[in-house]
Design a protein around this nucleic acid. Sequence first.
DNA 1: CAGTGGTCTAGACCACAAC
DNA 2: TTGTGGTCTAGACCACTGA
Lengths: 250, 250
Amino acid sequence: MARWHEVAQALREAVTAGTYPPGTKIPTEDQLEEQFACSRTTIRRAVAQLTAEGLVLPVRRGGTTVREHPERQPFALDTHVYRDELGYYFSRTVQDLRPVQPPTVGQGPCPPDVVALLGLQTGELVIIRDRVMGEPETGRVVQLATSYLPADLAAGTVLAEADTGSGGIYDRMEGELGWGPLDWHGVIAARAASADEARLLRLGPGVPVLTVTRTAIATAGSAEGRVVEVNVTRRDASRFEVRYPIRRDV
Amino acid sequence: MARWHEVAQALREAVTAGTYPPGTKIPTEDQLEEQFACSRTTIRRAVAQLTAEGLVLPVRRGGTTVREHPERQPFALDTHVYRDELGYYFSRTVQDLRPVQPPTVGQGPCPPDVVALLGLQTGELVIIRDRVMGEPETGRVVQLATSYLPADLAAGTVLAEADTGSGGIYDRMEGELGWGPLDWHGVIAARAASADEARLLRLGPGVPVLTVTRTAIATAGSAEGRVVEVNVTRRDASRFEVRYPIRRDV
DNA sequence: CAGTGGTCTAGACCACAAC
DNA sequence: TTGTGGTCTAGACCACTGA
């Protein structure tokens, strides 16, 4: 077994055994180098592994902290859409979240993985609406949500404005724009965090994020049959999970 | 921007642009070292990143191959359980899979993340049933499934035998053992692959796997109220996703 | 402002599997 | 057999940020 595997395993066991409780720091790289009698490169390889597993988070000058690793919190599966006077809701709120910074609206090229969903060509422009959500108490960022809307449909409409008004974009689509009723479906997937995501969610590079992608399709009006929005929501995969009931159909 | 970021970005663009099509190899590390005029360590850091993203797979002596990266394949959400004369089915088969090796049955300590689900104490023994599933044509392994059953309930019963007979363990539980009808629920999550998972699924270390965990609860008999099985199914997160419909409840 | 992790170099040897 | 990626060393400098 490679030396860095041994070091990683030793550290992993020390963390789970409580030698280094959550919130505390593991020894510095120089100290570990001495403790395990190997080069710093080997130590770094081991710590990189624990980082990828979401167990620790290194911060420059601040040392490497053991992350809280509670039970994963539920991230309700939104198989049903509800509506009240305020707008549409895709999940009963499991955890209260609030915007950490004002939502941003911009225009840019369509990311490769969204191109196919929107039925566009590579390089076509889309309206991009970004929301960064965090815990109300701590302000800690836990969720990133980005909406992509085809520019040929949304540019120049209220959908491209910062404030979309009461009820949000879905009310605008089904109301003024006459695209409704909308059809939705969802996809759950996971991938390594991008550099931006890692920074905002305070994750190490390459740590998995859980993604829920919701697609909205117009069934009427000028956009009939078109995918009018793709919403990608991302969370730290080590802290969240999607739960669902299984019904007996016999 | 760090040099290895630049190298990674250049390689990433070369791959997505088709300079290195799926199935072909990127240049060797020595060649990249020359091409980018930096040390091999820097090259390796960049390639490690692409590996974590699931874009390439390095094989010793075989070079580093660009992975096929088709659209993610659906991995149907099993919100309903069906039953026929052969047994219970949790998902309409999206893709035909067959066992790559005979299922194994053993007894061992309960993994930490399963302890809580089974309602056991740390260190208690469980029956472990392992299945490795692959594509019928190529034999390529795409799914790992492991069942954990409390030893105090399952040891000595047919549940601990290699062949559980027609209909599988759920029929035994609901039939001879009188634990039924069973209740199930599921959880979707993601995490970095373990070393074993990475080897079997042919992934790089730390690459995300998508997990679907199904829990079975007895509603009758000697096991009433107990969790009698936890099944953890894992797939390469870069190749599979869970799709689900969204219903309008208003 | 100084100690931490982040990056990078140049070089060596090894283990494995494709050739 | 041998070329490939895998591991490891010893050392250097840098950049950021928390003490």
